[in-house]
């Protein structure tokens, strides 16, 4: 459990740093927002998306930081968090979910790429790039785990 506590301390530092970075980015984007809103609809949409994503990261890191600090201070809560983090059924669910997602998303992306090729070349090349990157990540992971096990 002491090893887990030191892992929690390191994670708390990481989440704290992430929160500060995201907060900085958030303030910077809010300052810039006035100028962006003078531009086109697309520019405003992109700025809004970026702002929402940064806000979500900020919220995510703050919630995790608070939770971890609570676990560091409270032994009972820490044990519950450890059990939840290391629960084998949860891991199986995550592995199965990832496998199902991969098996569905890659063929669907392939179909979408073929269909997009008939309508818009920019979208087609974007989807080809995404497909290639995903396939490379998949192959890299497969090679890594074949060596590991």
């Amino acid at each position: 459990m002491e090893k887990y506590q030191s892992h929690l301390k390191k994670t708390a530092v990481l989440y704290g740093a992430l929160f500060i970075i995201c907060l900085g980015l958030l303030v910077w984007q809010v300052v810039l927002l006035g100028a962006v809103l003078q531009g086109s609809y697309a520019e405003g949409f992109v700025a809004g998306f970026r702002l929402s994503l940064t806000f979500l990261f900020c919220l995510f890191s703050a919630i995790n930081f608070i939770n971890i600090m609570k676990a560091i201070r409270n032994a009972e809560y820490r044990k519950k968090m450890y059990i939840s983090d290391t629960d084998e059924r949860k891991r199986v669910i995550e592995e199965k979910t990832s496998a199902a997602y991969r098996n569905l998303s890659l063929p669907m992306l392939g179909v979408a790429t073929v269909v997009a090729g008939s309508f818009n070349h920019t979208v087609f090349f974007c989807l080809v790039a995404v497909l290639l990157v995903q396939a490379l990540i998949l192959m890299g992971c497969k090679l890594y785990y074949q060596k590991k096990y």
Binding site: Y82, I83, D87, R89, K90
Partner: peptide
């Protein structure tokens, strides 16, 4: 709690 898993498991 005794065996280190969740109740759902």
């Amino acid at each position: 709690m005794a065996v280190g898993v969740t109740r759902q498991t």
